[in-house]
């Protein structure tokens, strides 16, 4: 136990935790969206994220960027960021749609038991991550320095970098946009209808298949953004990058109340910050153990997460 360490580094740990939490929250949205509509843990979502982390690397590579290249000018940085985000979003979105088409749709048409979905998801996750693993020889890939992390705000001992601000702001903006989309548009109403009662929604003329595809696509888009942020923050990616962060993201989704969008955001930030406090207190190897202990404690008292379940019912 290192209380003085925690107290001395409280500010930096909080800031790092918030940035980490923003990525986890964006990632968690994919789990929560799919769960809210299908009552299904989309195990392959971690691979949707992982594909995003590689997609933007590959495109930056086409522009001649590698991990040793110089930091681009502000204009170049902006262009590269937009290109990286767009490509990662498209790659992740397509992967999510592909997983839905290959692993879930055939089972849905056969009225399979719920566990069967979990197993095909595991199969898809295994296949995608292993194919990428073989293709990259299981080595990690370095990320080009598209943004140089500079301290822009200093409060006491706490230095906040432009990258951390970007990550948190982008996560909040995307979250807000998604919330508006689900609650304010016709398509969003379709999603909420299917989440509440798939059969009634189908009878009312909602195209269930299309709504399900849309939900996977939205989850994929969020994961794509999270992937670019992850690349920039961590600086390397690997074929199994999605797995560990995926567990964090799923934990965050459950913590906030799975199926609940705002819950995912809250869960993500909370988990990110608390993990960093735990790392400060016990050492970084205990980071994940602390997260799980926390999860178990919270679920003991609130068995459906902090904000409660469900996309439809919780007026999310």
């Amino acid at each position: 136990m290192n209380f003085s360490g925690l107290i001395n580094d409280f500010g930096p740990l909080t800031v790092t935790g918030l940035a980490q939490g923003a990525i986890i929250a964006l990632f968690a949205l994919g789990y929560t969206l799919v769960y809210g509509v299908l009552r299904l843990i989309n195990f392959a979502h971690s691979e949707v994220f992982m594909i995003g982390t590689f997609a933007c690397l590959i495109v930056w590579g086409w522009f001649g960027l590698d991990q040793n290249s110089a930091v681009p000018s502000f204009g170049g940085m902006l262009v590269y960021m937009v290109i990286g985000l767009v490509v990662a979003i498209i790659a992740s979105g397509l992967t999510a749609l592909f997983v839905e088409l290959v692993a879930y749709r055939p089972l849905r048409q056969r009225n399979a038991p719920p566990l069967a979905f979990l197993i095909t998801a595991i199969g898809a996750s295994l296949a995608i991550s292993e194919i990428v693993g073989v293709a990259t020889h299981r080595n990690q890939r370095g990320v080009p320095p598209v943004i140089s992390a500079r301290t822009v705000i200093t409060i006491g001992d706490t230095h906040i970098t432009n990258l951390q601000i970007l990550i948190v702001v982008l996560a909040l903006v995307m979250m807000f946009a998604l919330d508006r989309f689900i609650n304010g548009t016709r398509l969003g109403r379709g999603i909420r209808a299917v989440a509440q009662n798939p059969d009634s929604a189908a009878l009312m003329g909602v195209n269930k298949s299309r709504v399900i595809s849309l939900v996977f696509l939205l989850g994929g888009l969020m994961a794509g953004i999270a992937a670019v942020m992850y690349d920039l923050k961590i600086g390397v990616t690997r074929y199994d990058a999605g797995f560990m962060l995926g567990i964090d993201a799923f934990t965050a989704a459950v913590l906030g109340g799975i199926g609940n969008l705002r819950g995912a955001l809250l869960g993500g930030f909370l988990l990110g910050v608390l993990q960093n406090y735990a790392a400060g207190l016990f050492g970084s190897e205990w980071l994940h153990a602390a997260a799980f202990v926390l999860l178990i404690l919270i679920l003991l008292f609130r068995p459906t997460g902090l904000l409660g379940e469900s996309l439809g019912r919780a007026r999310a």
Partner: peptide, 21 residues
């Protein structure tokens, strides 16, 4: 052998689609 888990993942999907029970 390099592809064992990738192939295994695909086998799992195929089995579950053909025999969901």
């Amino acid at each position: 052998y390099e592809y064992r888990f990738a192939l295994f993942g695909i086998v799992i999907i195929v089995i579950m689609i053909l025999r969901p029970q």
